[in-house]
Structure formats: structure tokens, C-alpha cells
Design a protein around this nucleic acid. Structure first.
Lengths: 349, 349
DNA sequence: CTGAAAGCGCTAACAA
DNA sequence: TTGTTAGCGCTTTCAG
């Protein structure tokens, strides 16, 4: 048995020596190529086992020009929405020979750029951007090197860029329809700010209000996507002369902040004001929270992104698709009918 | 100007040709080595720029035997506790030349093993395990190849394994002390199950109760680390003949589940029963939640792990440390004094 | 079926 | 200072 220093990995060379064959033969066996005699194959496998040999994937990549590795940039690991997309991504990339490398810069554009370039330098076979703050220029540059799929954003439009999103406008429509169906008419929107996603949800809200003949009640209060933003905006709602009976909030976190503010002011949810969020993060289903929300098909989005990427890696000439998935409303205990008015109460008798 | 096919990256060879120097000279310039004349350096840099050359780090690693890359295995990205540790890790590894590769298998031991081995095959310079479900055997095998730091677990004890944890027993003591100080005597514990961490917190609770002369009230209800586990266990508490005035729960998620169950039964928190969690995840600070908790210094733990790893990469012979950080109690609105008894009320006059 | 030989793109002595 | 020469560990023709 050949003697090796501890801590130093055996190489294909050691295995070849141990098995009494050539390097190439070992390589063939390891890559499951046909045309290797049973005896030799067995000898090689035995040597591999004895030496606990594992191929050096750096060397392998250098020679073979592909790494069986995909890189994933995540905008923000603190946001469960993205993490749930990652779950889908993992189930769509469950080939045991495929390694998924995650990277995140917490939304810092410059750091994101560096990380993505590092991934490229590591020769990943493709990239998934689960949300990002990259410049259009950087995205273009990256696409020129490797296949890229973008999830949740569709504002960066480039020929050849695959995207997976949910239909934010339609989703906002679902929220409004749900509330209208419960009997609400005075429905306000706490918006998400200036991002493309926030804008779509706002437009969806406005459209839907119009459609339901509620144009006169359309009211947008500036908020944001954070707990705190929802808290502040709800404060503004409370200060308004006339109060709505329902709030459609741009995302779940903000909705939670809004609920907290309302309850703190003694306004009951949903008895006095109903609240509907957006995203459908698993957290919203927690018993303590139990928020009605428009759920994006997060898992499906991740899964699809993984499939689109591998299709593109297989066939780089494949035509890029912009896939838009339909969200679904999940009714929970933060929404109910509007408080009965004296008028309504008398009619109920 | 040399002609290259699109989509194909320039190599050091192209740069050398373009600049009219040798490959080695380019390499020297790129690695900021001294002893390169200003003119040549400039010529190289210009060529690099013109060709948008970026070194292939796979080739670089193969030749130089190190990758400037560290691998991080995360037990569960859905748990904010781990994500907050990651934040610390990133700030401790903020060298722009260092890339941190994240990998997660959602607690699947076998997949974790494969991922960690992949990372090793990619020749990462070191590994951080932020929670893990690896067997002791796998950890030992991994340590034999590269420096490893384990965060949050200290049950796998190996010479040469660095670990960073918080002091769970002391933390449990803080929770009990807080409640005792508020006037509680009948304090129960909803535990976290059989893991080493859960056990430490349980033991810490039991010790502390003893210390405060409350041994007779010591009651442990089996629960777990999830929202749902807390919900169930709180149900059991409600069904008990005599009820405690305070609950110390094994972690924040479980505590949230418990609070939800109590409130659903009309038991007010903290008016009727106080609840203290453990971990100090940022989520617990959300307005809607506002949970009193024993906070681990998550950021510091991550930061420290990063520093320990780089120290170990620098000097592999460095003696391993088992660092235990002190947690701190954060009082929020889920804890208050016990409900005044008739007796106490009369005394208050 | 098997082995020899030529790289993959870069670093690292060693000369010059 | 700069260029030449060997590899790093593996894959991949191409003979045999």
C-alpha cells in the first residue's frame, strides 16, 4: 500500500499506481464510461476506496470546462419570501452531482456585483438571481458569460434573460376582490414605495377599485416593505378624518406592522378594520399572526427557475422565457366583513 | 487588437500577447508583486482593461493550492437565528478577496454530508458549520482536511475543533431570574426536546429554580423548537389543574406558539401568564410580537467564528478554542409581574 | 479495451 | 526586472 502524508488527499495518480493501471483508465472508471473491463474497473474502485480518493473538482473543472455548480445570489436572507424561493430552487436542482452555491450581500449593490463576478470566476455553469440590486449593465455583462435566470424582478428586460415572477397586478386584484366580497367598499392601500413590484401592486389595486366601481374610495398611503413602514402608515390611517374598513398592504411584513399599530390604538383586526398582505410567506401562517394574504407560488417559482436554468445550460441557444405565475388569495383571520353600520344592522333584521 | 470569440473569456495568454510581455509578468502584476517596472505594469493593466480580463480562479486555485474561499453550511435558512449568525460571519470575513460560499440542506444529514464534501472538493480554505446534523464521524473526516469552526453546537468534541456557542445554562438562569424578580414563583418550562441545546436550557432552568428556592415549583413540559410545539405544550399547560404564572420556553418560535395558544384560550399575556423565550431573533422585536427573550449574541458569534477560522487558516497548528459567549435578557411586553392575588392585593393597600 | 500525450489557465521557482 | 520551464490534478483525443 502506498504511503501518503496525512492531510494530503490522494490524487488520480496515486489511485492509478495502487490499482496498477493508467491515469486515464481511472478517469474513465470514475466517470462511468463504458468499455472498461470488469476486472480493471473493480481494481480501480478498490484502490479508490482504500485511498479514500475523491476527485479534486478544481482540477476536474479546469480540464473539462464545466463545474456542475450553479451560483445563486439572494437579495436578502432575512426575508422568508426569498428563502422559500430557495427551497423551490433546491428541489428543482436536486441532482446530487449538482452543487448550488449561495451568496448574499444583503442588498448592497456593489458587494452583489463582486460576489456574482466571483461566482463567474469560479466558473459556475449558470446563475440564478433571486431578487437583486445589480445594475442593468452588470446583469448584461453576466449574461454574456453564463446563463442567468432572474426571479421576482422583471424590470431588467434583456433579450436572452429568463425571468420568473408572479403577477403582482392580478394579485392586488385578488386582494381587493376578496375584501369587496366580504362587503368592504372603503378599502385603502398601504403601498411599497417606488420599486417596480410595489408599483405593480399599487396599479393592480387602483385598477381593481375602478373595476368594482369603487374609484371614489381609492386611497394610497405611502409606506414601504418593512414592519416599521406598515406601522407608520397605519398611524397615518388612524389620523385620517374618515377611516377605511379595510387595508390592502403591499407585503406581509408591512401588513404585520400595520396590524400591530391598529391593535395598539385599540382598533380591532378584523372586527374594525380588515387587513390583507401580499407574498404568502410561511410566517404569515403562524398562529400568532394568521394574516390573510395574496400568496405568490414561491416554491413553484424557485423550482421553475432551476428548471429553466438547467434547460438553458443544456441548450444555450434556447429562447428565453418570461414566466408569470398566478398568485392566490389565502383568507385567514385578519380579514372579515366590515363592521355592521346602524343602517346595515337594521337591514339585517 | 487580438480577435476573440464572444462569450469566451480572455486568458492570461491573451493579455500577455496584447501587452507584449510574458505570462509570468502578467501574473506578477495581477498579484501585486513588486519588482515590475512601471511601464510594463501599465502596459499589462491596459491590456487587462482592454480585454476585460478576469483571472480564472479555477486555474489559479489549481496552481496555487488555495482558493480564498470559505464554505459555510447552515442548518436552516428559515430560522432567523442562523441567518443572524451569518450576518456576523459576513462582517468577520469582509475581505473583498474572500468569497463565502453558503450551502444548506434544511437539516437533512445525508445531503449536508454531500454538500460539505463538495465544498471540500472545491478546495475551500476552511469551513464554518452554523448548526449542522453531521455525524461525529463526518465532522472528524472534514476536520482532517481543512480547518473547521462549529457555531451553536458544542456536543461534537474533538481535539482541534473550534467552537462558538452561547451559555445556554446561564441563559436559562437569566430567564428564571427575570421572572423571579418580577415576583413569579410558579414558573414552568416548555422544553426543546432531546438536543444538547434543549438539554442545557432545561438543566439551566432546573438549577435556577433550585437556586431561587423554587424547587417545588419546577415543572418541565415537553415541547420542541417549533411554533407548533409551543402551541401544543401551552395547551397541556392550560389543561393542568394548577396553572403557572410564567412560562420559560426553550426558544422564541415555540414561545410564539405558546403565546398564541394562551391568547386563543382567553388567557392574557402577560397579565395572566408571562412568557419568556430564548434566542433573541430579530423577529421577536417586531411590534406585533414583542417577546421577552434571552438573546444570544448572534452577530458576535458569527463574527468570532469568522475570525477563528481565518486565524486557523493562517496557522493550522493553532490551538483550538471552545468559546462560550454570554447571553443577555431582553425584557419586552410578554413578561410582567404575576396577577395580583387577593392576598397580595390587600397587602398593596 | 487501455495507455501515452497533450493540454485546461495559472503560479512558482529558477535562470537570465 | 523579466522570461523560461515545470507542473497543479484531471480530461480528452488519439494510437495501439
Amino acid at each position: 500500500m502506498s504511503q501518503r502524508r496525512v492531510g494530503i488527499r490522494a490524487t488520480i495518480h496515486d489511485v492509478a499506481a495502487q490499482a496498477g493501471v493508467s491515469k486515464s483508465l481511472v478517469s474513465l472508471v470514475l466517470r462511468d464510461q463504458p468499455y472498461v473491463s470488469a476486472e480493471k474497473r473493480e481494481a480501480v474502485l478498490r484502490a479508490v476506496d482504500e485511498l479514500s480518493y475523491r476527485p479534486n473538482s478544481v482540477a476536474r473543472s479546469l480540464a473539462s470546462r464545466h463545474t456542475h455548480t450553479i451560483g445563486v445570489l439572494v437579495l436578502d436572507l432575512h426575508n422568508p419570501v426569498f428563502v422559500e424561493i430557495l427551497d423551490g430552487l433546491h428541489s428543482g436542482a436536486d441532482d446530487p452531482h449538482l452543487t448550488t452555491l449561495l451568496v448574499s450581500a444583503g442588498g448592497d449593490s456593489e458587494r452583489e456585483r463582486r460576489l456574482v463576478l466571483s461566482l463567474l470566476d469560479l466558473q459556475v455553469d449558470g446563475l440564478v438571481l433571486v431578487g437583486h440590486r445589480l445594475t442593468t449593465e452588470t446583469v448584461t455583462q453576466v449574461m454574456a458569460e453564463k446563463p442567468v435566470v432572474v426571479v421576482t424582478r422583471r424590470d431588467v428586460r434583456r433579450r436572452g434573460l429568463d425571468t420568473v415572477c408572479n403577477d403582482d397586478r392580478a394579485g392586488a386584484g385578488l386582494a381587493v376582490a376578496h375584501l369587496v366580497e366580504l362587503g368592504h367598499r372603503n378599502i385603502w392601500h398601504l403601498d411599497g414605495g417606488r420599486s417596480a413590484v410595489a408599483q405593480d401592486r399599487r396599479l393592480g389595486y387602483q385598477d381593481a377599485m375602478q373595476t368594482h366601481g369603487l374609484g371614489a374610495h381609492t386611497t394610497v398611503v405611502g409606506a414601504g416593505f418593512s414592519d416599521d413602514a406598515g406601522w407608520q402608515a397605519a398611524g397615518a390611517v388612524l389620523d385620517a378624518g374618515e377611516r377605511p374598513t379595510a387595508l390592502f398592504v403591499a407585503n406581509d411584513f408591512s401588513a404585520l406592522g400595520a396590524v400591530a399599530r391598529l391593535e395598539q390604538a385599540g382598533v380591532r383586526v378584523p372586527a374594525d378594520i380588515s387587513v390583507v398582505g401580499y407574498d404568502g410567506m410561511a410566517l404569515a401562517a403562524m398562529r400568532r399572526i394568521d394574516l390573510t394574504t395574496v400568496a405568490q407560488p414561491l416554491h413553484a417559482m424557485g423550482l421553475l427557475a432551476a428548471r429553466m436554468l438547467s434547460a438553458r445550460i443544456q441548450d444555450p441557444t434556447r429562447r428565453a422565457r418570461n414566466t408569470v405565475l398566478r398568485p392566490a388569495l389565502i383568507a385567514r383571520s385578519s380579514s372579515a366583513g366590515p363592521p355592521a353600520t346602524a343602517d346595515a344592522r337594521s337591514r339585517e333584521r
